[in-house]
Nucleic acid binder design. Structure first.
Length: 150
DNA sequence: GCCAACGTTGGC
DNA sequence: GCCAACGTTGGC
């Protein structure tokens, strides 16, 4: 079992939205590295930190679970979607996604600011300077450590 | 709204 | 293959 962190802007799709919908196709990822993590790294049942980005209180807001294998992101084929990619084709899709299933909200959001204050987490991909990936792996030891902060 | 960091694009 | 220009991310 592996662990991941997935960013979402709460104004667009928050942990409460996932709670209400129970399950969601994680569409719109248009970064090759993030795609590769979903396509090659994720397995059903893997743990996911649901991270709120670009908002008043950035941080880990809840837990989710990988709920499907990777499959082509339908939005890349839809000319009306803002995620439409004219360079992709159904025969050779460029972008993949997984479904994500709600597990639970954290009792409180563990903020980015708080995470930065823990020296043991300094090597986390999330905290490395300039990191903008929206999907990234989390070490098992960091997963455990962060949950103990809750 | 600003801007640093980074990815992508496209001319050469 | 280089690299300038441009677009996006996301914290602040």
């Amino acid at each position: 079992m592996n662990f991941w962190l997935m960013k979402s802007e709460p104004d667009t799709f928050s942990i409460d939205d996932l709670k209400r919908k129970k399950r969601e196709a994680w569409d719109g990822v248009r970064n090759y590295q993030a795609r590769n993590f979903m396509r090659d790294g994720m397995r059903v049942g893997d743990g996911v930190f649901f991270y709120h980005s670009n908002c008043a209180e950035p941080g880990i807001a809840g837990l989710a679970e990988v709920a499907s294998d990777a499959y082509p992101d339908p939005s890349q084929f839809d000319p009306k979607s803002k995620y439409f990619d004219p360079g992709s084709s159904r025969d050779n899709p460029r972008w993949m996604l997984v479904d994500v299933k709600f597990t639970r909200k954290l009792k409180r959001t563990i903020t980015l600011d708080e995470l930065k204050n823990h020296a043991k987490l300094a090597e986390m991909a999330l905290l490395r300077k300039g990191n903008r990936l929206s999907v990234m792996p989390v070490d098992a030891k960091d997963w455990k450590y962060i949950l103990e902060l809750e």
